[in-house]
């Protein structure tokens, strides 16, 4: 039991060293708060007409001030994809598995360090974005669910990227599919002639479902509940990680 524990801690340590010794990690993690704050503040500022004061506010300013999360998800996706995709791209996967032969452990350690690093970046980005938006527009209403949910969104998208890259073993393919799944599917939904199909797609597409957790008013207009929507995104992340993990264990490296 102790040996098992030590093995897990060492695998975590190794994966963390791998992640922190790449400049790209720090650029991506630093860009998350920057993008989230800048985009959120800009979106909130655009709502200053519909929300001139706290009492007369007709906009979901909490959601608007967290608009940046929409784009920061792409950064998190890239971070998650690179954590595994770069191993296949550079051939270090062989070295990794020679050092940690238990493939489950490798994937679990990667998932942990990816989730932790994006989680820290997101936990910095979200309150900063809310605070910055408050400078340009009143931000009334409950914020806890939107804030916590946004952090989860970013972490889950990073894990989704890790799962995709593990499954596909290729950075470019995983990024293309990941970005398509996040950004293209909602766009395609808009083009559908049938409203019921539009709603179906919005409900089951990972990004619109996940971001519904940011809504603080007019919840009746949501096609899926806030937490249920986040659950859909979580299902995608867990599903892809599981599928990736099974393939990782069964395939030759």
């Amino acid at each position: 039991m102790r040996a098992l524990h030590a093995g897990c801690v060492r695998a975590l340590h190794a994966e963390w060293t791998k992640l922190r010794t790449l400049a790209s990690t720090w650029w991506l993690l630093a860009a998350v708060p920057v993008l989230t704050v800048v985009l959120g503040t800009a979106a909130a500022a655009s709502a200053s007409r519909t929300c001139p004061s706290r009492a007369l506010c007709h906009a979901d300013t909490v959601r608007l001030s967290l608009t940046g999360v929409w784009l920061s998800q792409a950064l998190c996706l890239v971070l998650g994809v690179l954590a595994m995709g770069a191993e296949y791209g550079t051939g270090t996967i062989g070295v990794t598995l020679a050092a940690v032969p238990l493939r489950r452990r490798v994937l679990a350690a990667k998932a942990a360090v990816v989730a932790l690093s994006t989680g820290v970046a997101a936990a910095a980005a979200v309150p900063l974005a809310l605070a910055a938006a408050r400078l340009v527009v009143p931000v009334p209403g409950p914020q806890a669910r939107a804030a916590v949910g946004s952090v989860f969104c970013l972490v889950l998208v990073a894990l989704l990227g890790l799962g995709l890259a593990t499954l596909l073993r290729d950075t470019a393919a995983a990024l293309t599919l990941g970005l398509g799944l996040l950004y293209a599917v909602p766009l395609l939904a808009e083009l559908l002639p049938s409203v019921s199909w539009q709603h179906r797609l919005q409900r089951w597409a990972p990004m619109p479902a996940g971001l519904s957790v940011q809504w603080t008013r007019d919840l009746d207009r949501l096609v899926i509940g806030p937490w249920a929507g986040l659950g859909v995104l979580a299902a995608y992340a867990v599903g892809l990680l599981t599928a990736g993990g099974v393939a990782f264990r069964l395939r030759d490296a």
Partner: peptide, 15 residues
């Protein structure tokens, strides 16, 4: 993109 020593460092940490 990783420095040579860091490549050995993560391997060392794995054990």
């Amino acid at each position: 993109g990783r420095r040579g020593r860091d490549h050995l460092l993560w391997l060392a940490h794995s054990h």
